[in-house]
Design a binder for these strands. Structure first.
Length: 452
DNA sequence: TCTGGGGTCCTGATGCTA
DNA sequence: TCTGTAGCATCAGGACCC
């Protein structure tokens, strides 16, 4: 999907269509999750600090992500992919590989193109959004093709042309080559995929280590035999919070770690999992990050056990100077719990039950005391004016634009934050459905094989 | 007012055990 | 019984991805 989060926001808010939209954390330490193509013109891109984005594009709309909405749209799109093949490998909410051969939907260039074009039309019909399709003989090449296809396009890499196409591209084009590896290779005089291939396997292994060296050499020769895997087991579950202001108080650090442990266990249990290894993550005031872990005798999903382990790990960490981030994770997962953990839990169990927290609970320092919160971009309903979304709030006022996905751009009104006529609302569907129409979007989808 | 959150995979050091 | 070693598990950190 193209600029997925920002596109969803533009589809649901007519006044933002064609405008620069930036979705991400709005706190002092937020970063950009997605920028619309209009915002990218100003140099705004993913992972950029929000403060920098605001300097570059002061007039853009800044919105917080609405993951529940994105997830529901993602499910519609994945449903469409599922009609193409039993082998669909989601990479994220907005990306997936599809093995079209396994679905019997494509057998040559023409049928593949047809399938890809139909898929793009179906995505647009069902979600109102644009998606790009990369068609190729391997996952690596399909991924590169889809990057080239964005936005709103389709690119097919013909068999036999792969090496000629890859050769002149930057090594950074290859999946798995990030800033560090890119720098490493540049210092060795390797800039392009051709130069990577010329360097030879032994040299790449020497430079980058065994696994990365072999893998990169194979990719440079356009060799990628990795299959599309539809079922992937979760390997770890973790939660972390970055605090608006560094925490110096050791007692407070302990409280936050317990809270994170509970949230982590909550997620673990929600997934029906338990785990053996507890991991504590601490990012200090100077951005240095350290992790400490402890492996138990058996898997647990007991909040008291995880809390205790996290507290023990915290004991071994120096937090003087302050911490900006804390995280708790569990790995070594199993889909059962070992009841035989009495010895470990004996001292901890009296700590009481899991403190359930709502998913979007704000960290305490972000929470305005006893005031209703109106996050930018979230939907609201007003008794007199109908459906709208929060354009901004502060100083006891909230500004709302009244419009819906299929209305023209709407008018703006400002209310007191405690106005009883105003209440939070569920997002509306991006594409209005006619009576009797299928909700799952599978009607008419018969797409074809494309790799993604 | 630089630098989120949730993941995966790899590497090297270290210690245990057969 | 002692010693050397191969292999494995654990731990910490780093790179990468979306």
């Amino acid at each position: 999907m193209d600029a997925f989060f920002a596109s969803v926001e533009q589809a649901s808010k007519p006044s933002l269509r064609g405008k620069a939209v930036v979705v991400g954390g709005l706190g002092p330490r937020g970063v950009v999750a997605t920028a619309s193509y209009e915002a990218r013109v100003f140099g705004v891109h993913s992972a950029m600090p929000m403060a920098q984005a605001r300097r570059l594009a002061p007039n853009a709309a800044y919105l917080v992500p609405r993951f529940a909405l994105y997830r529901s749209i993602s499910e519609q799109v994945m449903g469409l992919l599922g009609t193409l093949s039993p082998l669909v490998e989601p990479l994220s909410l907005d990306e997936a590989f599809v093995d079209l051969e396994a679905g019997g939907r494509a057998w040559d260039e023409r049928s593949a193109r047809l399938a890809g074009a139909k898929l793009r039309a179906d995505i647009r019909a069902v979600t109102g959004l644009t998606g790009s399709v990369g068609l190729a003989a391997s996952k690596m090449l399909a991924k590169i093709a889809s990057e080239q296809a964005k936005p709103d396009g389709l690119v097919l890499i013909e068999p036999g042309t792969e090496r000629a196409l890859l050769g002149p591209l930057s090594v950074r084009t290859l999946p798995g080559v990030g800033p560090a590896t890119g720098d490493h290779l540049r210092r060795a005089g390797i800039h392009t995929v051709d130069e990577l291939a010329e360097a030879g396997e032994d040299e790449l292994v020497r430079l980058l280590g065994k696994a990365h060296g072999h893998a990169l050499y194979a990719m440079a020769l356009a060799r990628d035999e990795r299959p599309v895997v539809s079922e992937r087991e979760t390997k770890s579950v973790s939660v972390e919070d970055t605090y608006d202001v560094d925490i110096h108080d050791r007692v407070r650090v302990g409280t936050e770690v317990r809270r994170l442990a509970d949230r982590c266990v909550s997620r673990l249990r929600g997934a029906g999992l338990s785990g053996r290894t507890i991991v504590l993550k601490v990012r200090r005031y100077d951005f240095s990050t350290l992790t400490r872990s402890e492996t138990l005798r058996g898997p647990t999903d007991d909040p008291a056990v995880v809390r205790e382990a996290a507290a023990r790990l915290l004991d071994s960490v120096d937090t003087t100077g302050g911490v900006r981030l804390l995280g708790v994770g569990v790995s070594g997962l199993a889909d059962y719990t070992q009841e035989d953990l009495f010895a470990q839990a004996a001292g901890a169990r009296e700590d009481g039950p899991l403190l359930e927290e709502p998913e979007a609970a704000p960290a305490p320092e972000r929470q305005a005391p006893a005031e209703r919160r109106w996050p930018a971009g979230h939907d609201v309903r007003h008794a007199a004016y109908g459906h709208g979304w929060v354009q901004g709030s502060g100083l006891g006022r909230v500004t709302v634009r009244f419009e819906t996905p299929d209305s023209p751009p709407g008018r703006v009104k400002t209310f007191r934050t405690d106005d009883p006529a105003l209440e939070p609302a569920e997002p509306l569907p991006l594409v209005s459905r006619r009576p009797g129409e299928a909700q799952d979007g599978s009607a008419g989808a018969g797409g074809g094989p494309s790799r993604r």
